[in-house]
Structures are given as structure tokens and as C-alpha cells.
Amino acid sequence: MIKSNSCDEIALAARNVRKSFGSTEIIRGVNIDIRQGERHALIGPNGAGKSTMFNLLSAAFAPTSGEILLNGTVINGLEPAEVNRRGLARSFQITSIFPRLTTFENLRIGAFARYGVRFNILSTANRLRKANEEADRLLRLVRLERVASELAGNLAYSDQRALELGLTLATDPRVILLDEPTAGMSREEAEYATSLIRTVTEGRTLLIVEHDLDVVFSLADRMSVLVHGQIIASDTPAEVKRNAEVQEAYLGQEAAAC
């Protein structure tokens, strides 16, 4: 594969990405660079195409044209499973867990994938020491020990969100994509979630799509602003705040809504 030195520090990138649904073009030529190890936020007003962009970056959708690069390798058109094996994991905006499994078992499913025991039918799941230890570690990481043996379907909403985060981490990805991780949470819950995200993504690359600007400004090292399917700014939060175009297109609107 083509791999130049300059690309090495870019973990995830979009190159001239376009996406149309029918005759409507939602993403109109997007370029993003997400650097190795940074926490990057993607923001934008409703209908700007954030979710579509998120799905493109996580290879859930294939772009109409352009390329998505993970560590310098094109990943568009790959199976989600393959993309995950290359070190990219994503969360879902609508909680996406396994309700008939316990919290612990949910996380262990991720650990199985990591240790390659998918088709094992020769030993019971409880006997696989490594996977169980890893699940325990994840459980502590997302602070869900107290509900370890509850069925995930019965967890409280904020616990389910934490589990969602834990599942995303379970395959030990280098690049993590989080889709509105604090959506539908109260202020305290969102603060808790933010601190959790900060700890668990330590040393990894993070792209987060988020509505809550408090969360964004407290988490992100850099951010990109998506408006009408195009990136209008990509910089540090402080710089983005000062950007007049952004203020008009996005922050002004938010302020008006308040």
C-alpha cells in the first residue's frame, strides 16, 4: 500500500470525500486530518451531515467519491469487521449493546474478538482466562463492576452508555470514533461521561461527534466544523471560537437558540 512518511502521524483522514443519497449530496468534498493521539471533535449545526460523515469515517457507508485513510491505507468499501481489525472502533448514537447478555459478557464478546477465539466451541467461555481478565479490566475501566452480572438490557441509561463506550474499547482500537456519547444525558451524567471518556481514551486517537459544546471544549485538542457538508474550519478550540465564519454559522445559531 502507498504509505508516505508524512502520513504516518495522521491516524485517520478524509480526502475529497463526497456522499450522495439519491440526487441529494450530503457531504460535498470533505478533507479532515485526525492526528495520531489527538482528541478531535466534529461539530456542526443540525443537518450539516455530521452523522453521515461519522458513518463514512467508520466505514459504515462507502463514499460516493474520495477516500478514507486509516494510517495511510484506504479503508472505504471494506467490511466493518475488517476495519475494526485494523484498529478502528466506533460507538453508536442509539445505544447499541447486547441486551440478552450481562454487562460482563458484553465486554467479553469484545475481548473474544481481540484474542481470536471466535470459533472456539471446545472450551466454555468461563474457562478462557485471558478474555475474562480482559473483560474484568474493561469493566473496571468503565466503572461498571457493580452491575457486572445484570443483563445489559436492564441497565440504567447512563450505565448503558458507559457499556457502549466499554464495547468500543474492547477490541483495543488505536482510533476511536464516538457518536454523541452524552446524548440524552443530564448535566451531571454528561460530566461523568466526559471524565470517563478522557480517562479511557488516554494514549489513543479519538474522534467525537457531539452536540454539547461544553463537552467538546473540555475534551477536544482540535476540532472541525462541518456546515452544509463542508468543513469550514479545522483548528484548536480557541481558534475555532474566534473564527467569524464559525460564529455566524454555528455558535451564533446556538446562542440564538438559548
Binding site: 466493518p80 469487521a81 481489525r85 447486547f98 447478555l101 464478546i109 472456539n120
Partner: peptide, 22 residues
């Protein structure tokens, strides 16, 4: 009780998520 059994259960719950877990 095997890992595959658990994965099978997870398929019934949420196949899409499983794909994104590799």
C-alpha cells in the same frame, strides 16, 4: 456456554454491533 455460543446470542441481539467489533 462456549464463546461461539455467546457470540451467536449476540448476533440475535445486535448483529450490526458485532460486525463493528470485528
Amino acid at each position: 456456554a462456549t464463546p461461539l455460543g455467546q457470540i451467536a446470542l449476540a448476533i440475535g441481539d445486535n448483529e450490526k454491533r458485532l460486525r463493528f467489533l470485528g
